[in-house]
């Protein structure tokens, strides 16, 4: 913890030194950005924009994780569906995020649905590939055990399958979350009238670096909070059986 604080302090010091060197216009000092953040917070715009963006992140993330897990599970368990689905995955994986976003807006209009589905579609193939790997490594010995003891389907999923998939789901969720929020900002910049991405777009047109940094840092702080308050405790809970020494 001490080292982390020191590292953070060094970063702010370097930022301050940079702002002295580059000048207020290109890199405003930390306290200027903090004041701008406070201003936005007072007017209520910060909370509104953060909330809207966070809602889009959550929606796209949940859709992509649910669909990706289901597809990955099917593809990992059945060879035919794996062969059928694999070329689609490769196309999706290699399609630039920007292309998917632009096409979604053209085909579905500048709507919330288009925005969220474009982000979900960007994240979907990565979730699928990760969960497919997990589904391939499921232990057949435990599967047979569940079969001979006639475990019910839900018991099997919850107690036999999900714990084996947990590390893969966690990896997909972790990489997914950071990817999703970065793409959400682009989606907002290109076709939404609110959100952190939209605000950054406006600030870009005015070359307002202070505002860009204020919004970017506020959102990073929110995602950091999600990571430490939600993702990490969940991972610890899932891995509780590993922690005790033998």
């Amino acid at each position: 913890m001490g080292w982390r604080l020191l590292s953070l302090g060094l970063l702010i010091a370097a930022w301050y030194a940079g702002s002295l060197f580059a000048g207020e216009r290109l890199l405003p000092a930390p306290q200027v950005v903090a004041l701008a953040m406070l201003d936005e917070a007072r007017s209520g715009a910060l909370a509104l924009n953060l909330g809207v963006t966070l809602a889009r992140v959550a929606a796209a993330f949940i859709i992509a994780m649910a669909l990706g897990s289901a597809l990955g599970l099917i593809m990992g368990r059945s060879r035919v569906s794996d062969r059928l689905g694999d070329p689609w995955l490769i196309v999706l994986l290699n399609l630039p995020a920007l292309v998917i976003i632009v096409l979604a807006y053209i085909w579905a209009g500048l709507t919330e649905t288009a925005a969220v589905s474009a982000v979900a579609l960007n994240k979907l193939p990565i979730a699928t590939v990760t969960v497919r790997e997990g589904a391939r490594s499921l232990d057949t010995a435990l599967d047979e055990m569940a079969q001979v003891f006639r475990m019910r389907a839900w018991t099997r999923i919850r107690h036999v399958m999900l714990p084996q998939l947990a590390p893969y789901l966690a990896a997909a969720a972790r990489s997914g979350l950071s990817l999703v929020w970065k793409i959400v900002l682009i989606v907002e910049l290109l076709g939404r009238p609110n959100g952190v991405g939209f605000e950054i777009g406006v600030a870009f047109q005015l070359f307002d670096v202070t505002r860009i940094l204020a919004y970017a840092l506020a959102f990073v702080a929110v995602m950091l909070a999600v990571e430490t308050l939600l993702v990490q405790p969940l991972e610890r809970h899932i891995a509780r059986w590993r922690q005790r020494p033998a």
Partner: peptide, 10 residues
């Protein structure tokens, strides 16, 4: 079974 085949996470 020949091996215990227990669920390690339960």
């Amino acid at each position: 079974f020949q091996e215990p085949r227990l669920l390690a996470w339960r």
